[in-house]
Design a binder for these strands. Structure first.
Lengths: 135, 135
DNA sequence: CACGATTGGTTGAATCTTCAACATGTGCTC
DNA sequence: GAGCACATGTTGAAGATTCAACCAATCGTG
């Protein structure tokens, strides 16, 4: 637990100092970039990025004011809102990701035995399943 | 990563709803309870709980106003401050810990194969070492 | 179709964290 | 022992997160 806390703090500082993005902002950009047409409904995005809707709403406002994301309505469901990744957002993500994956490799992947990495994957998949079961 | 984020959020909510303690507050109480005479210098406590000094200072103020902790000076080093666990703090920790370990067991330990648990231990020990090396 | 229940999303206030500046004390060196 | 670098802690303001309240649109049922 301690190791995982320190790791995420390190990744967060790294991303923030080099690219001015927090991990949760980065996460949002990643999910949007992977989505078809680079857009997602707010609720889906919240789910994928495991953030509360309120938090996502605030964070998107910040990203929007940085010009990395913009929000537009949804034709089908008039309540709905799509978050779109802008070209500038995609470029920013691209730059950040290069550094980020390298840091992850450096402090996580490369120091762990491959079979232990696989074990971590199995373990947290099980944890996720258990949490989903419980609601 | 996603699993670990969800797990810590679940543990946090659990602790907060049942005992009004955040994980970082809980962590502080645990470290103090384990220390000789149930007291630690602020800097050591910050180290053990992997929090910034500033954050620890604020959090301790909150804990102090709840009566779970109190701060007293240090005879040797007049700059120093000891954080002490009060009896009330110990009692609160005791109550919280019973629930907490059960939740950890329920959502973490019990859903993971023991050899995978061992792998997680090895892996994050290595991560910690790597982070310590880098400073 | 009308009503209540639910879902999608935003907002503002309270809380917590981070960041930079500060005050104080120690230790080292000359 | 004066001056300077460094360590310990605290503070206040700025930034982020949570929480509860809210509005608007959809759904389901009678």
């Amino acid at each position: 637990m301690d190791g995982s806390v320190r790791l995420t703090e390190l990744l967060d500082r790294d991303l923030k100092s080099k690219h001015g993005l927090s991990v949760s902002e980065y996460e949002i950009l990643v999910r949007l970039s992977e989505a078809p047409e680079r857009r997602l409904r707010m609720a889906e995005l919240a789910e994928h990025a495991s953030q509360s809707r309120s938090r996502l709403s605030h964070t998107c406002s910040r990203l929007e004011s940085k010009g990395l994301v913009f929000r537009g309505g949804c034709p089908n469901d008039k309540r709905g809102v799509y978050a779109h990744l802008t070209d500038e957002g995609f470029a920013a993500l691209d730059r950040a990701a290069r550094d980020h994956v390298e840091t992850v490799r450096d402090f996580f992947v490369d120091v762990i035995d491959p079979s232990d990495l696989a074990a971590i994957g199995r373990a947290f998949t099980a944890v996720n399943k258990r949490i989903a079961e419980a609601g």
